[in-house]
Design a protein around this nucleic acid. Structure first.
Lengths: 207, 207
DNA sequence: CGACGTAGGCGTACAACGTACATCTACGGT
DNA sequence: ACCGTAGATGTACGTTGTACGCCTACGTCG
């Protein structure tokens, strides 16, 4: 009945994401986001319970527009498409990577994506424990790959530093790091995903 | 020449790890670790440059005793053994999971483990770009699996909550979450790893 | 054996964070 | 035109990492 709200949750998420993209994860504070919205710090708390909820909002916003439709192709292609869309969405906002890892269970958009993945796996004949393991393995690879790119991109300073390591202490590492510098992120992700999918395609009897 | 040091870096790492195991990651502060060591807060800074370096110390300590020897078995078994040892070492100190992810490039023990992994992959015939991708994929799976267990254990509250989700909105997710509750962590990791290794074993021509 | 200089140990202080609390205020409904 | 509700905000507190400067214990050298 009284005074209407002047902010929307998507609006808050957009502002927070702008801060994240512009100044990085360390700059994402309640004060800065409130300022970005032109409000006082404490006003934010009329819309989110605490910082955690703000972070969930950002994660959900990044994943909100994920296309969950799936082409009329074999299951392997369908899974690839869903994973690449997720990868692209997160990769478009590098700094959100640690937040996605922490909050993926709390973001509705993330749950919808998981549902879509599981639906494809089910159609492909995965059920029961095999389906659980397939899903968890794909997600593990996805999150691991995102963090590989975030904390130690092959083209980044960390890899360069490894290539400079003492050849006598780390002969193979130094050589591999040098080779790694030429692998672009998209190719790395795609090649790794193909490996996991090859494994999922193999007959379970092979194990 | 003057006054000798009264702390050692392993000693500091041990104290920090004790705090981590006892009270969790949020309790790992410079003040608390200093108190654990019976020193004043600022004394810690005579031994580590900042909090980040303390975290690296902890990660390195957790991984320091990793057995990097490898059985006289096929490469697949060797890789499995190395990954399971790493998994077990981290799993023994759950709260260190986020720190391992952030600091694995800075911890010497982690680099030694990577070198061991790459050596096995090289013997197995992986070279150049294929070796890079194989290594990154295995590490991605490992880190993802650790975080799956840390942030959303199949036997935990998160999975239980998912099983309670609206059946109409998330039919497959709800069913899968219910099934997931019975999968123990060690089995989950081993089964996922077998999938990735199946993929690595497949002829690249199959892709 | 005593003085000295170096580096270890520590007390104080500050900026930035998340957020509890109380107050002020703008608006829709009567 | 008023009134009650809930939005907006200012202030303040506890906690964090850490910069700075002082005091002091000790190995070394005269």
């Amino acid at each position: 009945m009284p005074r209407p709200r002047s902010l929307t949750r998507p609006g808050i998420a957009t502002a927070a994401l702008a801060v994240l993209d512009r100044d990085g994860l360390a700059a994402l504070t309640m004060r800065v986001v409130a300022k970005e919205l032109g409000m006082a710090t404490m006003s934010l708390y009329r819309y989110v319970a605490d910082r955690d909820e703000l972070e969930v909002l950002v994660v959900d916003h990044v994943l909100a527009d994920l296309d969950l439709s799936v082409p009329p192709d074999p299951w392997r292609t369908r899974i690839t498409v869903l994973l690449e869309r997720m990868h692209a969405a997160v990769h478009a906002h590098r700094e959100v990577v640690p937040l996605v890892v922490r909050h993926r269970h709390a973001a509705p958009a993330s749950l919808r994506w998981i549902e879509a993945m599981l639906a494809v796996l089910t159609e492909a004949g995965f059920t029961g424990r095999r389906r659980v393991v397939a899903q968890r393995t794909l997600v593990a690879f996805l999150l691991g790959a995102l963090q590989n790119e975030y904390y130690g991109p092959l083209s980044g300073a960390g890899t360069a530093a490894m290539a400079e390591l003492s050849i006598s202490d780390f002969p193979v590492l130094a050589e591999t790091a040098a080779q790694a510098r030429g692998v672009p992120p998209a190719e790395e992700f795609r090649a790794g995903l193909d490996i996991v999918l090859d494994g999922l395609s193999a007959a379970p009897s092979a194990r």
